[in-house]
Amino acid sequence: MSLELILFIVFGGIAAVSAVLTITRSNPIISALFLILNFAGLAGLYLLLNAQFIAVVQVIVYAGAIMVLFLFVIMLLKPEKEKLFSTHPQLKIFALIIAALVFVQIAYMIFLSHPDTANANVAASVKAGTVEQIGRELYTNYVLPFEAAGYLLLAATIGALVLAKKKFE
């Protein structure tokens, strides 16, 4: 058993278990904390995949900024606790069965397609994940989407301000 596999099992296990715990807790604050744990596990997996920049951004932007926003809103609104399967239990069990079927289908497709990774190059993979490589791509070939992303964030800021305002004049 290689170190890589052990790390994959640890981080993957954290990500999978905390994902399940996120959607099964009745208290939304505990859900949000488990979602942060899930994001931390994902950051570990990204490091395992040689994606250093994405791993750091995952921790800073997702686990840091976005989840703090979630926790802030949860604590601001203080939602009541919700019991699982309290309303429409048959409908929810049906939904779970549908989800399980979709999982089986995706797993079947993954193993059927049998992706060929025999010529995966570790050096190329490490180089692809560096800040230098991503920054070069971002500011040369993808500069237009980058600007568009900036405008999207500006629009989202204005939209959030307008929506959360007390009332329209």
């Binding site: 994902a19 959607i23 899930n38 929810k92 999982f103 995706i106």
Partner: peptide
Amino acid sequence: AFMFIVGVAGVLTRRN
């Protein structure tokens, strides 16, 4: 795929 399905199940079953 597992995480995606957990997300789908969450959207379909939770009401909060």
